[in-house]
């Protein structure tokens, strides 16, 4: 998919193989405690779903969607949890870990002395983040299905959509990391991420926000992701779904382009 979007940047054969070798390194680095962190990453969105969806849902009751359909609160919150889990999974790998590898471990200085190029590093790291994120998304969709928060066919459609969401945030996160000066800048990223998490129509329909705020929210990536996944999982997807998909695809392309250009500039001085 990415190769289709960016044919010009992948200017010669072997790029796929070299990107894969970058992802392969991450598999080799999987050890002991990191495994548990990795696997347990799945529980986080599940805990949120149970706490907010079921616990707070007990206080909220049912919710009426803009389409007029009435759903239980957990079914409303679950796709938003899926979207924000895809976001934070992708961001943790492509911001914090990526920055650490680039600036502190100086890993890419070593890699760039080989035939591997900056764009291939970006692509390889992103692919790895997506493998990890996709496993989480799949597991979460299974839970949604088991709790009767969506149907089987809808879950199957939602899976590639969740992967796309991960790709979009991964690419954006990587581009963002190339502008980071130090760890303290990640406080800002964390705060921004938290704000997106709270206001992207995650816990209440965006329609309930004041109209100015609503317009701001509608252009943020998490809102588009939530809109897409909720539309699919509740079976209410309208024309805005195509807009969401186009938006996320554009985010992948732009993010990857900026990331590889900036990396070349930072590392090949």
């Amino acid at each position: 998919m990415v190769a289709l979007v960016l044919p010009r940047l992948v200017s010669f054969e072997g790029a796929g193989r070299r990107s894969a070798s970058v992802a392969e390194r991450n598999v080799a680095a999987l050890k002991s405690a990191y495994w548990i962190v990795l696997i347990s990453g799945f529980f986080e969105p599940l805990l949120y779903l149970l706490s907010i969806g079921v616990g707070v849902g007990g206080l909220v009751g049912d919710l009426t969607l803009p389409s007029g359909q009435v759903v239980e609160y957990a079914a409303f919150v679950a796709p938003a949890m899926l979207a924000s889990a895809a976001m934070s999974g992708a961001l943790s790998e492509t911001t914090f870990n990526f920055f650490g590898k680039m600036k502190f471990m100086k890993l890419y200085d070593g890699v760039l002395a080989t035939p591997v190029q900056p764009f291939e590093i970006a692509l390889g790291e992103l692919a790895w983040a997506m493998v990890r994120g996709s496993l989480y998304s799949a597991a979460f969709l299974v839970v949604m299905f088991a709790l009767d928060l969506t149907t089987g066919p809808r879950a199957l459609v939602a899976f590639p959509a969740a992967v796309l969401v991960g790709f979009a945030f991964g690419a954006l996160g990587m581009a963002l990391s190339t502008f980071m000066r130090g760890w303290q800048d990640f406080d800002l990223v964390g705060s921004a991420q938290f704000a997106l998490f709270l206001f992207s129509g995650t816990f209440v329909p965006a329609e309930s926000y004041p109209s100015v705020l609503r317009w701001v929210i509608e252009v943020t990536p998490l809102y588009r992701a939530v809109d897409l996944l909720r539309g699919i999982s509740t079976g209410t997807l309208g024309a805005s779904g195509w807009l969401d998909v186009a938006y996320l695809l554009a985010a992948v392309a732009i993010g990857l382009m900026i990331a590889s250009r900036r990396m070349a500039k930072l590392l090949c001085k």
Binding site: V56, L59, V60, G61, L63, Y73, F203, V204, S208, Y209
Partner: peptide, 8 residues
């Protein structure tokens, strides 16, 4: 405020 609105 947001969720509070929906908690009757």
């Amino acid at each position: 405020l947001g969720v509070g609105d929906y908690v009757d």
